[in-house]
Design a protein around this nucleic acid. Sequence first.
DNA 1: TCGTGCGCACGCC
DNA 2: GGCGTGCGCACGA
Length: 417
Amino acid sequence: MSESKYREWILDTIDSLRSRKARPDLERICRMVRRRHGSEPDRTCAELEKLIQEQTVLKVNYKGSISYRNAAKVQRRSRKKDDVSLATAARRSAMEEASHSDLSNGDSAFGAVDQDEEDLEGDTSMAMDTDSNPDEEGAEESRDGQDRPSPSPHREGASVQCAPVRAASAPCSPSGSRPGSGPNCSAGSALDCAASQKPGERPNSLPPSSPAVLTHNEWAYDSAVSPVERQHPGMQKDKVELKPADHSGTTIPSALTNGKKESESREDSSSLSSDQLVPDSAARPDEVRNVSDGRLQTVSPPPENGTLQKLEAPYTAADGGLINGGTGDEVSVKLEKMNQNLLQWTVADVASYFSAAGFPEQAVAFRTQEIDGKSLLLMQRSDVLTGLSIRLGPALKIYERHVKVLQRTHFLECDDI
DNA sequence: TCGTGCGCACGCC
DNA sequence: GGCGTGCGCACGA
């Protein structure tokens, strides 16, 4: 089945659930998709996550439970009328906010924050937290999985997380309400994965101090983060959590946009008072570290090999560090390391890099075109804009902020040598 | 048992 | 007051 098909199915399902006043939660979505199309819940879950990343579907925490929204229809809700598009504003704010708020994670799935600026029209994907009950929900979270005071206890179980799919995953499994009966939550499906995890429970990956510990309802749902994207810490979109300090610690995406978007995001965030995005990828302790100073943000290394592991800086230095004014020796050193390794980057490394940089979708294009470190150095503007078949907005950003920077720094290093 | 429809309450603007 | 959301209940298959 094509992803587009799934997209259609899932969106239809969400719309359908909404039309009948049922909460479009994972369980219902999976069940309905399965019933209508025979798709396995785990697959649906996976596709849903993709859609969330693409911002086609918004994951929101509403009244203590996770709901999914058709991004195209959420826009209407935005409160700012002066903006070009309400939806756009909402999405952007969500993303930006997420990136900012996220303390330690500026993640990337949204990192695409930037990318989203331009892609907003087409996709939206963020998880929003619409709920407004900080105390209740926040408490629940802090309780970590304990029963939440929610009206319907059985519902809690309904939203489960897809543990199997991702460590801190999103509620993938509808099994909660009906153990074992969920849409295929049975045998090791993504759904059942979540079975073990209760809605109230936060992914273990979220450290207490993590922004993920959203104030209210927002939990760090990583569902949106695909395996690949999991590398990036999720973004948290909790206004309450938005603190200057936190911002400085945001990861890549955030870093990239912090400077120029901070004010903007804040503005937007206000517009999303009620709809708050739920960070898709929660900060993962193991992936995001050293974000305290805002310069040493780590782009999670590609699993394929460790080459990029030393490159945490590349990205940061080029985008975050420099942009933010962080021009310390550390940056230089890191850039140096990065450059040294750039030629050794494999296709997977390149893809992982862009994925981590907030361009998961575009990263696929790099992978498809088999762009490795050497190819990356040879890429020209036109290659990025047209050769990868990716959207212009992200392409421009990728080229200007990453490809160009990487090439420049690399060749500068060569010159020095 | 499951899917669906919808009254009603809630929160936000 | 309007609007979006979704709980909880009723109903039909």
